[in-house]
Amino acid sequence: MIAVVQFGGSNCDRDAVQALEQLGYTAERVWHEDGLPADTDGIVLPGGFSYGDYLRAGAMAAQSPIMADIREHERRGVPVLGVCNGAQIGSESGLTPGAFTTNERARFQCEHVHLRVENAETPWTRRFEQGAVISLPIAHGEGRFEITEERLATLRANDRVLFRYCDPNGNVTDGANPNGSTDNIAGVLGDRDTTAVLMPHPERATLPSRRQAGTDGQGILHGFSERTTVIE
């Protein structure tokens, strides 16, 4: 069962459950004060505005006791995916490196963007080719990824960058960067390939419908099928 963790202010938890169920997974919203169910074999930290983004986006949710449980599951190889506000929570809690802060133009960005797959050897990207260009929607005011030069060099050396913002032809340019993220980074991996965060919303791109931005999000969400063996 994939646990979609709900904090006060989460607003994409139902979207995540619906998208996962449409892909054949069993998913359930879990209130953060209730802890993870015993049968949890996947975790989503969904988008929204947990605690009104007070202090910093994701900072207060990262202090919830459930995060210790999530880190323990993550250590055992249970897949963890943080999306938008969930990415901010993931970085604030130390699941992934770097930080997400106010967009360069200090305004809320809501649009479809193109992403280049930088590492196709992860559970979240194995259904894409290396260098493939996919399209997902973004909706954030604090999505600018920041990291020190030293840690960025480590990310690159260890192939931990998952996606970069690009143009439709796969060119990574300043013009294709919607929020000023360092090195155009849109998503990164944690210490394990089973842990990832990204600012764009894969759960909003799972249906062939004019209401959604295509179906590229399916490949990312199917990362829950590409899990490694859990260490008990």
Rank of each mutant, 00 (worst) to 15 (best):
A3G: 12
D13E: 11
D15M: 00
D15F: 09
T26I: 04
V30L: 04
W31P: 00
D34M: 02
L36T: 07
P37H: 12
P37Q: 00
T40H: 12
V44L: 04
Y54Q: 14
L55E: 08
R56D: 06
A57G: 04
A57H: 05
A61R: 08
A62H: 01
M67H: 12
D69V: 02
R71K: 14
H73C: 07
H73A: 15
E74F: 08
V80K: 07
N85Y: 01
G86D: 15
A87E: 14
A87Y: 13
Q88F: 15
Q88M: 09
I89D: 10
G90C: 14
T96K: 00
P97I: 03
N103R: 05
R107C: 03
F108T: 03
Q109D: 03
C110R: 06
R116C: 08
R116V: 11
E121G: 10
R126D: 12
R127N: 13
R127K: 15
G131S: 14
A132M: 10
I138L: 05
H140D: 10
G141N: 04
E142W: 00
F145S: 03
A153E: 07
R156I: 15
A157C: 15
A157K: 10
N158H: 09
R160A: 09
D174T: 13
G175V: 00
D183L: 10
A186N: 08
G187V: 01
G187W: 02
V188D: 03
T194N: 12
A196K: 08
H201N: 13
G214L: 05
G217D: 07
T229M: 06
